[in-house]
Simulated scan of single mutants.
Amino acid sequence: MSIKHQHCSIRVDGERSARLKVRAVAEKCSVSELVRRAVDAYLADERQLSASDLRVRQLSEYSQIALDTIIAKTYPELRDVIVAKTNERMVQYHGQ
């Protein structure tokens, strides 16, 4: 049984195109295959978390709330400094 493919065109900027080509070479597949994989992942809604990923996120949220509570009660004068430094690091390390 053969799979019938439908033609679909997409446009990407030069940087994305170059990155796709590099990745395709590294993975020994075509750019089209990479795009198909990305579409499959999106359609499968892989945002659903594994139990381990969910646990890590829960621990992160718990830790943040616990630290914020401790800082607010013990060192309230440092809270704004800590938040500002966090924001700086988000930009520096995560582009956010």
Rank of each mutant, 00 (worst) to 15 (best):
C8L: 15
S2V: 09
V56A: 13
D13K: 08
A24C: 01
R37F: 01
V31H: 00
D40P: 09
E33N: 08
K28I: 03
S50P: 10
R37A: 03
R89C: 11
R19N: 11
A72K: 13
T86F: 12
E88I: 03
Q58Y: 04
L49V: 05
V12C: 05
V25D: 05
R11W: 13
Q92L: 14
S60H: 09
N87E: 14
A72Q: 13
Q48T: 05
R19T: 10
I71E: 05
V91E: 09
I3R: 12
R19D: 07
A38L: 03
Q48S: 06
A51I: 08
D45T: 04
S63G: 14
V12P: 10
S17Y: 08
S32V: 05
D53T: 07
A41H: 10
S50G: 11
L59R: 14
D80Q: 10
V22G: 00
S63R: 14
T69M: 14
E61M: 06
A18V: 07
I3W: 04
V25C: 05
K4L: 07
V31S: 02
I65G: 03
R47P: 02
M90P: 00
D53L: 10
D45E: 08
Y93F: 05
V83E: 09
E88A: 04
V39N: 01
E46G: 13
P76W: 01
S30E: 01
P76F: 01
M90Q: 09
Q6P: 00
R79F: 08
R16W: 07
E61T: 02
Y42A: 13
S30L: 03
H94C: 10
V83D: 06
V83G: 04
L54W: 13
L43D: 00
R11V: 13
I3V: 11
L43P: 00
S52M: 11
Y75H: 11
S52H: 12
I71L: 13
Q92I: 14
S32M: 04
K28L: 04
T74V: 15
R47E: 02
I71R: 04
S52W: 10
A38C: 02
V81A: 15
A24P: 01
L49Y: 03
L49Q: 11
D45R: 12
R23P: 00
R23D: 02
E46I: 15
S60P: 06
A84W: 08
R57M: 09
V35M: 04
C8W: 08
S30F: 02
H5C: 09
A84K: 11
E77S: 12
Q92P: 00
M90H: 07
I65R: 09
I10H: 06
R23S: 05
S30V: 04
S63T: 15
T69D: 13
E61Q: 05
R16I: 09
A72N: 12
R16P: 06
V56F: 14
R19E: 10
L67A: 12
G14Q: 09
Q48R: 07
K21S: 03
T86P: 00
Q48C: 05
A24R: 01
E46Q: 14
A44S: 14
D45Y: 04
I71K: 03
